[in-house]
């Protein structure tokens, strides 16, 4: 269960050095962000609405150019020329929060083929990749429907296919489970897990503490454009001060675990449980 082992020797894929970004209207969205992302890791970014998560995402793939500071991809500072940006965006894909801001075409096939054709692939190769991804994400049953007749969950799957088809090294998900029913949220979680297994670096912004606690290798807490705290889920969710500052609750499993430790039912030295099942196991073993 030691999540960090396999990452220790791995290289930094993305690095932010003192990145500041101010919108044209004067809103300071990022105030000196320093962040290192390790290749293949599962990084969750948490923070209130307006804490700068979405701006951070758009800075990572060069849509926003920092007013100050630097973004390095594979140790090389991002080249903000047209060509440099295209090269960067081939490597980093973003799945946006609202599919209606991402799906520009009424046809599922057209939609998914857009990114892959922008990579310069031939129509045949593109079609092959599009068909493969449609099958992988179970889009087949609604591929012939126009996007305006799709449900929220279906639109989300198409918007993920949009990005996956481009085979990026890193995918950023902006609140992927927002406004989805539990079934579709779980489906999206499974898709994200598969990406990590393939070695794709995944950065996820989320408000779901339970999910972040279970899923992430590392969590970054943001507040008002700055990083308040970063660390493993266990470190972050025991950092009372940082949690209070970002208005985050502890994950339910952790809350119960700590309270059971306090009242002496469970042993404080046990490894922190991340799922209800693990906790249940402890209780069962502890009380028998």
């Amino acid at each position: 269960m030691q999540k960090n082992d396999r990452k220790d020797h791995n290289e930094i894929i993305l690095e932010l050095e003192n990145v500041c970004y101010t919108y044209e209207d004067g809103t300071e969205a990022l105030k000196g962000v320093n962040l290192k992302v390790v290749r293949g890791e599962k990084l969750a970014i948490m923070g209130a609405n307006g804490s700068g998560k979405s701006t951070l995402f758009l800075t990572l793939n060069g849509i926003h150019k920092p007013n100050k500071g630097m973004v390095l991809y594979n140790h090389i500072p991002v080249d903000y020329s047209r060509k440099g940006l295209l090269a960067l965006r081939k490597k980093i894909g973003i799945v946006f929060q609202d599919p209606d801001n991402q799906l520009f075409s009424a046809s599922v096939t057209q939609e998914i083929s857009f990114g892959v054709l922008n990579l310069g692939l031939s129509f045949e190769e593109a079609r092959e990749r599009v068909e493969k991804i449609i099958e992988e994400l179970n889009i087949t049953s609604f591929r012939d429907k126009p996007t305006h007749f799709l449900s929220g969950g279906q639109k989300k799957r198409v918007s993920i296919a949009d990005i996956l088809v481009m085979n990026p090294e890193m995918i950023l998900f902006d609140e992927p489970a927002a406004a989805l029913d539990p079934k579709h949220a779980r489906m999206i979680d499974e898709i994200i897990d598969q990406l990590s297994e393939k070695g794709i670096t995944v950065i996820l912004s989320t408000h779901d503490v339970n999910r972040a606690f279970l899923w992430a290798d590392r969590i970054v807490l943001m507040d008002e454009g700055s990083i308040v705290s970063e660390g493993t889920p266990d470190e972050i969710f025991t950092d009372e001060a940082a949690l209070a500052q970002t208005n985050l609750e502890k994950p339910t499993v952790l809350k119960i675990f700590e309270s059971l430790c306090k009242s002496g039912v469970l042993d404080r030295t046990l490894p922190v449980p991340h799922t209800a099942n693990e906790l249940e196991q402890y209780i069962r073993e502890g009380t028998v």
Binding site: I63, R89, G93, F96, D98, N101, Q102, G115, N118
Partner: peptide, 10 residues
């Protein structure tokens, strides 16, 4: 927002 997302896809 749409333009940003299209830019993100090269």
């Amino acid at each position: 927002a749409l333009f940003d997302s299209m830019e993100s896809r090269c």
